[in-house]
Design a protein around this nucleic acid. Structure first.
Lengths: 157, 157
DNA sequence: GTATCTGCAAATCTTTTGCTCATCA
DNA sequence: TGATGAGCAAAAGATTTGCAGATAC
Protein backbone atom coordinates (compact mmCIF):
# COMPACT_ATOMS: atom_id res chain seq x y z
CA UNK A 1 0.00 0.00 0.00
CA UNK A 2 1.20 3.45 -0.86
CA UNK A 3 1.10 5.85 2.05
CA UNK A 4 0.70 9.57 1.64
CA UNK A 5 4.35 10.10 2.47
CA UNK A 6 5.45 8.15 -0.60
CA UNK A 7 3.51 10.27 -3.05
CA UNK A 8 5.46 12.24 -5.56
CA UNK A 9 4.96 15.89 -6.31
CA UNK A 10 2.22 15.61 -8.93
CA UNK A 11 0.27 13.13 -6.83
CA UNK A 12 0.21 15.61 -3.97
CA UNK A 13 -0.94 18.31 -6.37
CA UNK A 14 -3.87 16.19 -7.48
CA UNK A 15 -4.74 15.26 -3.94
CA UNK A 16 -4.55 18.90 -2.87
CA UNK A 17 -6.86 20.03 -5.70
CA UNK A 18 -9.40 17.34 -4.86
CA UNK A 19 -9.28 18.29 -1.19
CA UNK A 20 -9.85 21.96 -1.96
CA UNK A 21 -12.69 21.28 -4.38
CA UNK A 22 -14.41 19.08 -1.81
CA UNK A 23 -14.00 21.64 0.99
CA UNK A 24 -14.67 24.78 -1.07
CA UNK A 25 -11.16 26.11 -0.55
CA UNK A 26 -8.95 27.96 -2.97
CA UNK A 27 -5.85 26.27 -4.34
CA UNK A 28 -3.14 28.83 -3.73
CA UNK A 29 0.53 28.26 -4.46
CA UNK A 30 1.37 28.99 -0.82
CA UNK A 31 -0.92 26.25 0.47
CA UNK A 32 0.36 23.80 -2.07
CA UNK A 33 3.99 24.41 -1.12
CA UNK A 34 3.19 24.15 2.59
CA UNK A 35 1.37 20.87 2.04
CA UNK A 36 4.16 19.50 -0.15
CA UNK A 37 6.72 20.44 2.44
CA UNK A 38 5.00 18.82 5.38
CA UNK A 39 3.67 15.70 3.68
CA UNK A 40 7.09 14.70 2.39
CA UNK A 41 8.73 15.44 5.70
CA UNK A 42 9.43 12.46 7.94
CA UNK A 43 9.95 14.55 11.06
CA UNK A 44 7.21 16.63 12.65
CA UNK A 45 8.03 20.23 11.92
CA UNK A 46 6.80 23.35 13.69
CA UNK A 47 5.27 26.23 11.72
CA UNK A 48 8.63 27.94 11.99
CA UNK A 49 10.41 24.89 10.52
CA UNK A 50 8.04 24.82 7.54
CA UNK A 51 8.53 28.53 7.01
CA UNK A 52 12.31 28.18 7.07
CA UNK A 53 12.22 25.22 4.70
CA UNK A 54 10.20 27.19 2.14
CA UNK A 55 12.01 30.52 2.35
CA UNK A 56 14.36 29.69 -0.51
CA UNK A 57 11.54 28.59 -2.79
CA UNK A 58 9.05 31.33 -1.74
CA UNK A 59 10.88 34.34 -0.30
CA UNK A 60 7.69 36.35 0.27
CA UNK A 61 5.85 33.63 2.20
CA UNK A 62 4.97 34.92 5.63
CA UNK A 63 4.96 32.95 8.85
CA UNK A 64 1.34 33.73 9.62
CA UNK A 65 0.27 32.29 6.29
CA UNK A 66 2.03 29.09 7.30
CA UNK A 67 0.18 29.09 10.62
CA UNK A 68 -3.14 29.70 8.88
CA UNK A 69 -2.58 27.00 6.28
CA UNK A 70 -1.54 24.44 8.88
CA UNK A 71 -4.58 25.24 11.04
CA UNK A 72 -6.72 24.88 7.90
CA UNK A 73 -5.27 21.50 7.04
CA UNK A 74 -5.77 20.43 10.63
CA UNK A 75 -9.46 21.40 10.49
CA UNK A 76 -9.83 19.32 7.34
CA UNK A 77 -8.24 16.28 8.92
CA UNK A 78 -5.03 16.30 6.91
CA UNK A 79 -2.72 16.99 9.82
CA UNK A 80 -2.69 16.51 13.57
CA UNK A 81 -1.29 18.93 16.12
CA UNK A 82 1.29 17.66 18.57
CA UNK A 83 2.87 19.27 21.61
CA UNK A 84 6.43 18.17 22.17
CA UNK A 85 8.58 18.58 25.26
CA UNK A 86 9.80 21.91 23.87
CA UNK A 87 6.36 23.41 24.44
CA UNK A 88 6.00 24.29 20.77
CA UNK A 89 3.38 22.99 18.41
CA UNK A 90 4.46 20.34 15.91
CA UNK A 91 2.43 19.12 12.96
CA UNK A 92 2.04 15.46 12.12
CA UNK A 93 0.99 14.47 8.59
CA UNK A 94 0.83 10.76 9.33
CA UNK A 95 -2.82 9.68 9.29
CA UNK A 96 -2.35 6.04 10.14
CA UNK A 97 -2.46 5.07 13.84
CA UNK A 98 1.06 5.36 15.18
CA UNK A 99 3.20 6.37 18.15
CA UNK A 100 6.16 8.62 18.78
CA UNK A 101 9.81 8.40 19.75
CA UNK A 102 11.03 11.77 21.01
CA UNK A 103 14.72 12.54 21.44
CA UNK A 104 15.32 14.80 24.40
CA UNK A 105 18.59 16.08 22.98
CA UNK A 106 17.76 16.99 19.39
CA UNK A 107 13.97 17.17 19.81
CA UNK A 108 13.26 15.10 16.70
CA UNK A 109 10.08 13.03 16.70
CA UNK A 110 10.02 9.68 14.91
CA UNK A 111 6.95 7.55 14.23
CA UNK A 112 6.59 3.88 15.02
CA UNK A 113 3.86 1.24 15.04
CA UNK A 114 3.43 -1.60 17.52
CA UNK A 115 1.18 -4.51 16.58
CA UNK A 116 1.42 -6.29 19.95
CA UNK A 117 0.20 -3.14 21.68
CA UNK A 118 -2.76 -2.65 19.37
CA UNK A 119 -3.83 -6.21 20.15
CA UNK A 120 -3.97 -5.47 23.88
CA UNK A 121 -7.35 -5.17 25.57
CA UNK A 122 -7.95 -1.61 26.88
CA UNK A 123 -7.43 -1.25 30.63
CA UNK A 124 -10.46 -1.13 32.89
CA UNK A 125 -9.45 2.31 34.18
CA UNK A 126 -9.97 3.73 30.69
CA UNK A 127 -13.43 2.21 30.33
CA UNK A 128 -14.42 3.59 33.71
CA UNK A 129 -13.07 7.04 32.84
CA UNK A 130 -15.21 7.71 29.75
CA UNK A 131 -14.91 7.30 26.00
CA UNK A 132 -11.39 7.13 24.59
CA UNK A 133 -11.04 8.15 20.95
CA UNK A 134 -7.28 8.16 20.48
CA UNK A 135 -4.40 6.30 22.08
CA UNK A 136 -0.85 7.42 21.63
CA UNK A 137 2.39 6.24 23.15
CA UNK A 138 5.24 8.65 23.63
CA UNK A 139 8.66 7.17 24.24
CA UNK A 140 11.24 9.71 25.34
CA UNK A 141 14.98 9.14 25.37
CA UNK A 142 18.02 9.56 23.19
CA UNK A 143 18.12 8.68 19.51
CA UNK A 144 21.06 6.72 18.09
CA UNK A 145 22.73 9.83 16.67
CA UNK A 146 22.57 11.75 19.92
CA UNK A 147 23.80 8.71 21.85
CA UNK A 148 26.70 8.54 19.44
CA UNK A 149 27.50 12.22 19.92
CA UNK A 150 27.46 11.85 23.68
CA UNK A 151 29.58 8.72 23.41
CA UNK A 152 32.31 10.40 21.38
CA UNK A 153 32.44 13.20 23.92
CA UNK A 154 32.90 10.48 26.56
CA UNK A 155 29.82 11.73 28.37
CA UNK A 156 27.50 8.86 29.12
CA UNK A 157 24.24 9.29 31.01
CA UNK B 1 2.62 1.57 50.47
CA UNK B 2 2.08 5.22 51.12
CA UNK B 3 2.43 7.36 48.03
CA UNK B 4 3.50 10.98 48.18
CA UNK B 5 -0.02 12.09 47.42
CA UNK B 6 -1.33 10.56 50.65
CA UNK B 7 1.06 12.47 52.85
CA UNK B 8 -0.38 14.90 55.29
CA UNK B 9 0.75 18.46 55.71
CA UNK B 10 3.50 17.90 58.28
CA UNK B 11 4.92 14.97 56.34
CA UNK B 12 5.27 17.20 53.29
CA UNK B 13 6.98 19.84 55.43
CA UNK B 14 9.55 17.31 56.58
CA UNK B 15 10.10 16.03 53.11
CA UNK B 16 10.48 19.59 51.80
CA UNK B 17 13.05 20.49 54.46
CA UNK B 18 15.08 17.35 53.74
CA UNK B 19 14.96 18.07 50.01
CA UNK B 20 16.19 21.64 50.52
CA UNK B 21 18.97 20.63 52.87
CA UNK B 22 20.17 18.00 50.42
CA UNK B 23 20.08 20.44 47.48
CA UNK B 24 21.35 23.52 49.29
CA UNK B 25 18.11 25.42 48.74
CA UNK B 26 16.31 27.76 51.10
CA UNK B 27 13.07 26.71 52.69
CA UNK B 28 10.80 29.64 51.96
CA UNK B 29 7.11 29.73 52.82
CA UNK B 30 6.25 30.33 49.17
CA UNK B 31 8.02 27.19 48.02
CA UNK B 32 6.45 25.16 50.77
CA UNK B 33 2.93 26.30 49.90
CA UNK B 34 3.52 25.66 46.22
CA UNK B 35 4.79 22.17 46.95
CA UNK B 36 1.88 21.45 49.31
CA UNK B 37 -0.57 22.63 46.73
CA UNK B 38 0.71 20.55 43.86
CA UNK B 39 1.56 17.37 45.76
CA UNK B 40 -1.89 17.05 47.25
CA UNK B 41 -3.56 17.83 43.92
CA UNK B 42 -4.88 14.88 41.94
CA UNK B 43 -5.16 16.83 38.68
CA UNK B 44 -2.17 18.27 36.84
CA UNK B 45 -2.32 22.02 37.33
CA UNK B 46 -0.65 24.75 35.33
CA UNK B 47 1.42 27.45 37.04
CA UNK B 48 -1.62 29.70 36.74
CA UNK B 49 -3.80 27.09 38.50
CA UNK B 50 -1.36 26.82 41.39
CA UNK B 51 -1.21 30.58 41.66
CA UNK B 52 -5.00 30.88 41.74
CA UNK B 53 -5.29 28.11 44.32
CA UNK B 54 -2.87 29.87 46.66
CA UNK B 55 -4.11 33.42 46.29
CA UNK B 56 -6.44 33.17 49.28
CA UNK B 57 -3.73 31.77 51.53
CA UNK B 58 -0.90 33.97 50.19
CA UNK B 59 -2.25 37.14 48.61
CA UNK B 60 1.18 38.56 47.78
CA UNK B 61 2.47 35.44 46.02
CA UNK B 62 3.40 36.33 42.48
CA UNK B 63 2.95 34.20 39.40
CA UNK B 64 6.62 34.29 38.46
CA UNK B 65 7.59 32.92 41.86
CA UNK B 66 5.28 30.01 41.12
CA UNK B 67 6.98 29.49 37.76
CA UNK B 68 10.41 29.64 39.38
CA UNK B 69 9.51 27.24 42.17
CA UNK B 70 7.95 24.73 39.78
CA UNK B 71 10.99 24.86 37.49
CA UNK B 72 13.16 24.34 40.55
CA UNK B 73 11.18 21.32 41.73
CA UNK B 74 11.35 19.93 38.22
CA UNK B 75 15.15 20.25 38.17
CA UNK B 76 15.29 18.36 41.44
CA UNK B 77 13.14 15.54 40.16
CA UNK B 78 10.07 16.26 42.27
CA UNK B 79 7.78 17.14 39.35
CA UNK B 80 7.51 16.39 35.66
CA UNK B 81 6.46 18.85 33.00
CA UNK B 82 3.63 17.90 30.71
CA UNK B 83 2.28 19.57 27.58
CA UNK B 84 -1.41 19.04 27.08
CA UNK B 85 -3.50 19.66 24.00
CA UNK B 86 -4.15 23.20 25.26
CA UNK B 87 -0.54 24.10 24.56
CA UNK B 88 0.04 25.10 28.17
CA UNK B 89 2.47 23.52 30.56
CA UNK B 90 1.04 21.24 33.25
CA UNK B 91 2.95 19.88 36.23
CA UNK B 92 2.73 16.28 37.31
CA UNK B 93 3.72 15.38 40.87
CA UNK B 94 3.16 11.65 40.42
CA UNK B 95 6.55 9.95 40.46
CA UNK B 96 5.39 6.39 39.96
CA UNK B 97 5.24 5.12 36.34
CA UNK B 98 1.77 5.97 35.03
CA UNK B 99 -0.19 7.13 32.02
CA UNK B 100 -2.72 9.84 31.21
CA UNK B 101 -6.36 10.16 30.28
CA UNK B 102 -7.00 13.59 28.77
CA UNK B 103 -10.50 14.95 28.29
CA UNK B 104 -10.73 17.08 25.19
CA UNK B 105 -13.74 18.98 26.53
CA UNK B 106 -12.72 19.98 30.05
CA UNK B 107 -8.95 19.47 29.62
CA UNK B 108 -8.57 17.54 32.86
CA UNK B 109 -5.78 14.98 33.01
CA UNK B 110 -6.27 11.77 35.03
CA UNK B 111 -3.61 9.21 35.84
CA UNK B 112 -3.92 5.48 35.32
CA UNK B 113 -1.69 2.42 35.48
CA UNK B 114 -1.78 -0.61 33.18
CA UNK B 115 -0.05 -3.78 34.34
CA UNK B 116 -0.62 -5.72 31.09
CA UNK B 117 1.10 -2.96 29.15
CA UNK B 118 4.13 -2.82 31.44
CA UNK B 119 4.57 -6.56 30.92
CA UNK B 120 4.82 -6.12 27.14
CA UNK B 121 8.19 -6.52 25.45
CA UNK B 122 9.37 -3.21 23.92
CA UNK B 123 8.92 -3.03 20.14
CA UNK B 124 11.92 -3.57 17.91
CA UNK B 125 11.49 -0.11 16.41
CA UNK B 126 12.28 1.44 19.79
CA UNK B 127 15.42 -0.63 20.26
CA UNK B 128 16.61 0.34 16.81
CA UNK B 129 15.88 4.02 17.43
CA UNK B 130 18.10 4.53 20.48
CA UNK B 131 17.75 4.41 24.25
CA UNK B 132 14.26 4.94 25.65
CA UNK B 133 14.12 6.25 29.20
CA UNK B 134 10.41 6.95 29.64
CA UNK B 135 7.24 5.50 28.14
CA UNK B 136 3.95 7.26 28.51
CA UNK B 137 0.55 6.53 27.04
CA UNK B 138 -1.86 9.37 26.39
CA UNK B 139 -5.49 8.45 25.87
CA UNK B 140 -7.61 11.30 24.59
CA UNK B 141 -11.39 11.39 24.58
CA UNK B 142 -14.30 12.48 26.73
CA UNK B 143 -14.51 11.87 30.46
CA UNK B 144 -17.72 10.54 31.99
CA UNK B 145 -18.83 13.96 33.20
CA UNK B 146 -18.36 15.62 29.84
CA UNK B 147 -20.11 12.71 28.10
CA UNK B 148 -23.00 13.19 30.52
CA UNK B 149 -23.16 16.92 29.78
CA UNK B 150 -23.22 16.29 26.06
CA UNK B 151 -25.84 13.60 26.52
CA UNK B 152 -28.24 15.85 28.43
CA UNK B 153 -27.89 18.45 25.72
CA UNK B 154 -28.82 15.71 23.20
CA UNK B 155 -25.57 16.31 21.38
CA UNK B 156 -23.72 13.07 20.82
CA UNK B 157 -20.45 12.84 18.95
C1' DG C 1 26.31 39.51 57.17
C1' DT C 2 25.70 37.65 52.88
C1' DA C 3 24.07 34.90 49.35
C1' DT C 4 19.66 33.57 47.87
C1' DC C 5 14.89 34.53 47.00
C1' DT C 6 10.69 37.31 46.11
C1' DG C 7 7.88 40.54 43.70
C1' DC C 8 7.60 43.82 40.22
C1' DA C 9 8.01 45.15 35.58
C1' DA C 10 9.46 44.38 31.30
C1' DA C 11 11.17 41.26 27.76
C1' DT C 12 10.76 37.17 25.01
C1' DC C 13 8.71 33.73 22.35
C1' DT C 14 4.96 31.44 20.02
C1' DT C 15 0.62 31.82 18.04
C1' DT C 16 -3.49 34.49 16.67
C1' DT C 17 -6.07 38.37 14.71
C1' DG C 18 -7.59 42.84 12.17
C1' DC C 19 -6.95 45.09 8.17
C1' DT C 20 -5.95 46.17 3.27
C1' DC C 21 -4.76 44.84 -1.09
C1' DA C 22 -4.24 40.99 -4.26
C1' DT C 23 -5.91 36.88 -6.40
C1' DC C 24 -8.53 32.71 -7.56
C1' DA C 25 -12.82 30.77 -9.45
C1' DT D 1 -16.71 40.43 -10.20
C1' DG D 2 -16.98 39.08 -5.69
C1' DA D 3 -15.57 36.30 -2.01
C1' DT D 4 -11.46 34.34 -0.19
C1' DG D 5 -6.63 34.46 0.91
C1' DA D 6 -1.82 36.65 1.59
C1' DG D 7 1.12 39.74 3.84
C1' DC D 8 1.86 43.16 7.19
C1' DA D 9 1.68 44.79 11.76
C1' DA D 10 0.13 44.50 16.02
C1' DA D 11 -2.14 41.87 19.78
C1' DA D 12 -2.56 38.13 22.87
C1' DG D 13 -1.13 34.63 25.95
C1' DA D 14 2.41 31.91 28.35
C1' DT D 15 6.80 31.86 30.25
C1' DT D 16 11.30 33.89 31.40
C1' DT D 17 14.53 37.39 33.01
C1' DG D 18 16.84 41.74 35.18
C1' DC D 19 16.77 44.17 39.08
C1' DA D 20 16.13 46.14 43.87
C1' DG D 21 14.68 45.27 48.19
C1' DA D 22 13.59 41.43 51.58
C1' DT D 23 14.78 37.23 53.95
C1' DA D 24 16.74 32.65 55.37
C1' DC D 25 20.77 30.61 57.11
Amino acid sequence: MKTRRDRNRSEVVQWFRALCRRAGLRTTPQRLEILQSIVRCSSHPTAEDVHQALRARMPTLSLDTVYRALALFERHGVLARLWGPDGRCHFDPNQEPHHHLVCRDCGRIEDFTWAAFEALRPPSAARRWGRVSRVRIEMTGLCAQCLEKRGTRARRR
